[in-house]
Write a protein that binds this DNA or RNA. Structure first.
Length: 195
DNA sequence: CGACCGATTGACT
DNA sequence: GTCAATCGGTCGG
């Protein structure tokens, strides 16, 4: 047997222990999968943003607090935060322990567990709206505050990242980030086109 | 303490 | 296109 493509191959921890601005676009096309109570959901990552400690738009700008503590963990951990009084959003932490940076997961295309995603998201949500935003993604995948700070590279983690197929380089678009008021000029959002 | 605001979403004009 | 929902974090007094 040669180096067959195995759709179950986990993304190795070393992948995440690099600069968020490098990891973020390379994450496009990879798969995030969750398993809670034997309910499996997964999706292809299509939209991401990078956040770093010296970046005024980042939650860890200005140093560690109780809220952003997870951003300073080693690459491969999760940072889940609560926003606008009702939503949770998920980051995969990047870089080395002690420096705050990570990649906000802003959109996936559902692969497994679409019925579970529909149930979590509500009865009137169109399929294209299941996970095309950071809070929609977290809700569809069942990610919440219980997952803040967990290691997403362990074999028994309820949240894992699997190797997928990246888009062609010319199908990756970089843009300014969404919903921020500081650091608006930085083109640290990446969207992959897989058509 | 009180005031303000946010890495969003969904409903509505 | 506009805007309310809803609450923890942060900052000033």
């Amino acid at each position: 047997m040669t180096a067959d493509f195995n759709p179950q191959t986990p993304v190795p921890p070393e992948f995440f222990r690099r600069d968020a601005r490098v990891v973020a676009p390379e994450l496009l096309g990879h798969i995030i999968r969750t398993r809670f109570d034997d309910l499996v959901t997964s999706g292809r990552i299509v939209e991401v943003e990078a956040y770093r400690q010296e970046d005024p738009a980042s939650h860890c700008y200005g140093g560690m607090t109780r809220r952003n503590r997870a951003m300073f963990l080693d690459g491969g951990h999760l940072y889940v935060y609560f926003i606008y009084g009702m939503h949770y959003c998920a980051n995969i932490i990047t870089g080395q322990m002690g420096y705050g940076e990570g990649v906000l997961l802003r959109g996936v295309e559902p692969i497994e567990g679409i019925e579970t995603m529909r149930r979590r998201r509500g009865p009137h949500v169109r399929d294209r709206d299941l996970a095309n935003g950071p809070a929609k993604l977290a809700q569809a995948l069942g990610i919440g505050p219980e997952q803040n700070g967990i290691d997403a590279t362990g074999p028994d983690s309820p949240v894992t990242f699997l190797v997928g197929s990246p888009p062609r380089p010319d199908q990756i678009i970089a843009t300014p980030r969404i919903g921020i008021t500081k650091g608006v000029d930085l083109p640290w959002r990446w969207v992959g086109n897989f058509k």
